[in-house]
Simulated scan of single mutants.
Amino acid sequence: MTRIAFLGLGHMGLPMAVNLVKAGHDVIGYDPVPAAVDAASAAGVPIASFGIDAVAGAEVVITMFPAGKHVIAAYEDGLLAAADPGTLFIESSTIAVDEARTAHALAIEAGHRNIDAPVSGGVVGAENGTLAFMVGGSDDDFAAALPLLEVMGKRIVHCGGPGLGQAAKVCNNMILAVSQIAVAEAFVLGERLGLEHQALFDVVSQASGQCWSITTNCPVPGPVPTSPANRDYQPGFAGALMAKDLGLALQAIEQTTTDAQMGRLAQRIYAEFAAGEGGHRDFSGIITDIRDAS
């Protein structure tokens, strides 16, 4: 049994924390949002009044925050100081590569260990314990974190040194965004050509167009009962978060002078989506904007 502080109990963080509790670990959570606290308490996750209270005495601290600025601010404003020496910090938020490396340096300077371990797989993956983890950090710290990551995920890949987990995540999410747009456009095109959604799904899900955006996150109601489309695009992974992740991709594209035209276009489309009502719906709801724009 490991004593774990889990900070950030939103749509992704809460089911991850719940799986750790179910596995027998001593978990104490924290979130500044009252609704998240209520949901965590109802799910059996003990709650601390403050983040520094959760961290005190923990062997491992897992953070799942909205953005890199929140991670760095939390590290600088008391989390690192409140932790026992040698605590392993697992940073599972999706943040910029340079922010992950800054967080790593802050943790090391304070006498702790740190890995970046962003996730992929959405809320369903978090609930089922089938997330993919992309990990950046030392071999020893990866090995120390692995038993906990295996509780929450099905595929865990050590991508290299500090920040390289985030590098893998930004590339993955750029691919996901581009494919989600392509799938949405194809379903709108199919509608206008007279194809039923189920017929198009039956073809594409077993053909060369097959991808996660079809088989798990199908953006139209019907073919995949667990997809957000069958829950009125309730987030889930909100459109605003995909827009944020694509902003990180754009930042990386520009820093590395990479000719990534589809990534740039996806960033623009999701920024426009997030600026409207779509920002509060699951990111797969982009199909509604494509219908309206056509």
Results as ranks from 00 to 15, higher is better:
Glu109Pro: 05
Ala110Pro: 05
Ala110Met: 12
Ala110Gly: 07
Ala110Phe: 14
Gly111Asn: 13
Gly111Phe: 08
Gly111Met: 09
Gly111Arg: 12
Gly111Cys: 09
His112Trp: 07
His112Met: 15
His112Gln: 13
His112Glu: 05
His112Val: 09
His112Asn: 08
Arg113Ser: 08
Arg113Gly: 06
Arg113Asn: 14
Arg113Trp: 04
Asn114Arg: 12
Asn114Lys: 15
Asn114Ser: 15
Asn114Glu: 15
Ile115Asn: 00
Ile115Tyr: 05
Ile115Val: 06
Ile115Lys: 04
Asp116Met: 01
Asp116Thr: 06
Asp116Val: 03
Ala117Tyr: 03
Ala117Arg: 06
Ala117Asp: 09
Pro118Phe: 02
Pro118Cys: 01
Pro118Gly: 02
Pro118Glu: 00
Val119Asp: 00
Val119Leu: 10
Val119Ala: 10
Val119Trp: 01
Ser120Arg: 00
Ser120Trp: 00
Ser120Thr: 04
Gly121Tyr: 06
Gly121Asp: 09
Gly121Thr: 13
Gly122Ile: 09
Gly122Ala: 10
Gly122Glu: 08
Val123Lys: 02
Val123Thr: 02
Val123Met: 01
Val124Asn: 05
Val124Ser: 05
Val124Gly: 05
Gly125Met: 05
Gly125Leu: 05
Gly125Ile: 02
Gly125Asp: 02
Gly125Arg: 04
Gly125Lys: 04
Ala126Phe: 07
Ala126Glu: 01
Ala126Gly: 01
Ala126Cys: 02
Ala126Ile: 02
Glu127Cys: 01
Glu127Gln: 14
Glu127Asp: 07
Glu127Ile: 04
Glu127Ala: 03
Glu127Asn: 11
Asn128Tyr: 08
Asn128Thr: 13
Asn128Val: 09
Gly129Val: 04
Gly129Cys: 01
Gly129Leu: 01
Gly129Asp: 01
Gly129Ser: 03
Thr130Ile: 11
Leu131Tyr: 00
Leu131Thr: 02
Leu131Gln: 07
Leu131Cys: 13
Leu131Phe: 07
Leu131Asp: 08
Leu131Lys: 00
Ala132Lys: 13
Ala132His: 05
Phe133Arg: 09
Phe133His: 08
Phe133Tyr: 13
Phe133Ser: 12
Met134Phe: 11
Met134Asn: 08
Met134Tyr: 14
Met134Ala: 11
Val135Lys: 07
Val135Gly: 05
Val135Ile: 10
Val135His: 02
Gly136Pro: 06
Gly136Asn: 07
Gly136Leu: 06
Gly137His: 02
Gly137Ile: 03
Gly137Asn: 12
Gly137Lys: 10
Ser138Cys: 12
Ser138Lys: 03
Asp139Arg: 15
Asp139Met: 11
Asp139Leu: 15
Asp139Asn: 15
Asp139Gln: 13
Asp140Ala: 12
Asp140Cys: 08
Asp140Lys: 10
Asp141Cys: 11
Asp141Phe: 12
Asp141Trp: 11
Asp141Ser: 15
Asp141Tyr: 10
Asp141His: 09
Asp141Ala: 13
Phe142Tyr: 13
Phe142Lys: 13
Phe142Asp: 14
Phe142Pro: 04
Phe142Ser: 04
Ala143Lys: 15
Ala143Leu: 11
Ala143Arg: 12
Ala143Ile: 05
Ala144Leu: 11
Ala144Asp: 15
Ala144Met: 14
Ala144Glu: 15
Ala144His: 11
Ala144Ile: 14
Ala145Met: 07
Ala145Thr: 06
Ala145Tyr: 04
Ala145His: 07
Ala145Arg: 08
Ala145Pro: 07
Leu146Cys: 02
Leu146Ser: 13
Leu146Trp: 02
